[in-house]
Amino acid sequence: MILVTGATGTVGKEVLRGLPAGSEVRIMVRNPAHDRGAFAMAETVTAETVTGDYADERSLRRVLRGVTKALLVTNDVGAGHDARFLRAARAAGVRHVVKLSAAAVADTGADDPITRWQRASERLLRASGLDWTLLRPRSFMSNTLSWAPSVRSEGVVRALYGTSANACVDPRDVAQVAVRALTEDGHAGAIHTLTGPEAISAVEQTQQLADLLGRRLRFEELTPEQARDGLRGRYPEHVVEGVLGSARRQLAGAKTGVEQTVLEVTGRPARSFREWARAHRAAFAAV
């Protein structure tokens, strides 16, 4: 039995779509009424949905009963979710946890609150006594969906440090590697750093979107102060500072390295931003 957490998220929903025929999967949700119908998977996959909450260790033990492998996705910085999940996993007899982390963990120059939390979470897993696999993706290409409203209505992309490059990755590729780790042998103790095929800047992404849409798009660079103000409307302060710190590291060239992990694990090259954008063209198209 495979447990998938974060099943309505960017990677989790793609993991469900990619599980091979014959898989037995349990999906952890906090609100079954809200999440019902949010999942898509092959008809040959046997799935059940179970209510669980990272803040409630008793519910986690119930969710994990009978599970052999689990995909662990957490995002609440400092909430202790990883620690509770791993205690429950040990008590339930889970053998292998595949954790979604981030490439910044390996960057010695990254010392923001989000990266420190991710490092601590990885240490908990590696010391848990369970088999583990770490997935460390670079930024998701899907982050550019935040541009969609201004692209549709104004033909404008607004972002910080527009010429700085990032070897961003298609979440579908991250999910495919996760599926391999959950369904194949040979991934215990592995750290999979996941990138796209090239480092690309926001200015270049804007041009590729313009080519795809067949319309002119304009790029407007935000100042750090403008970026901070916009982020404060959506995130708590520690997340805001983490995002801005990450952008500064990108400006310094810390995110340009390209890995071949997607090809090595799946046998298929990582998708380009152009391929990702083509699949999501409708999100950016003018109404």
Rank of each mutant, 00 (worst) to 15 (best):
M1F: 05
M1V: 13
V4T: 13
G9Y: 06
V15I: 15
L16R: 11
L19C: 11
L19D: 12
L19E: 09
G22A: 12
R30S: 12
N31A: 10
H34N: 13
D35I: 09
A38W: 15
M41W: 11
M41T: 03
M41Q: 11
A42G: 15
A42L: 07
G52F: 11
Y54N: 13
E57N: 01
L60W: 02
R61E: 15
V63I: 05
L64A: 01
T68L: 10
K69G: 15
A70Q: 14
V73Q: 12
N75V: 04
N75K: 06
G78H: 12
A79C: 12
G80M: 07
R87F: 05
R87S: 15
A89E: 15
R90D: 08
V94Q: 14
R95D: 13
V97G: 14
V98K: 10
K99G: 03
A110Y: 04
P113E: 10
T115G: 05
R116V: 13
Q118L: 13
A120E: 10
L125C: 07
R126D: 03
R126P: 02
L135A: 02
T144E: 07
S146F: 03
W147S: 06
P149L: 05
P149N: 07
R152H: 04
G155L: 09
G155T: 09
V156A: 03
V156K: 12
A159P: 04
S164A: 15
A165N: 03
A165M: 06
R172F: 05
A178I: 08
A181R: 03
L182C: 11
L182A: 11
L182E: 14
E184T: 11
H192W: 00
G196N: 09
I200Q: 03
S201L: 03
Q207M: 05
L209P: 08
A210I: 08
L213G: 10
F219E: 02
P224M: 13
D229H: 01
V240E: 02
E241T: 10
V243I: 14
R249P: 03
V262W: 06
L263Q: 14
V265H: 02
V265W: 02
R271C: 00
S272P: 00
S272Y: 01
F273Y: 15
E275Y: 04
W276M: 08
A282Q: 13
F284V: 01
A286N: 04
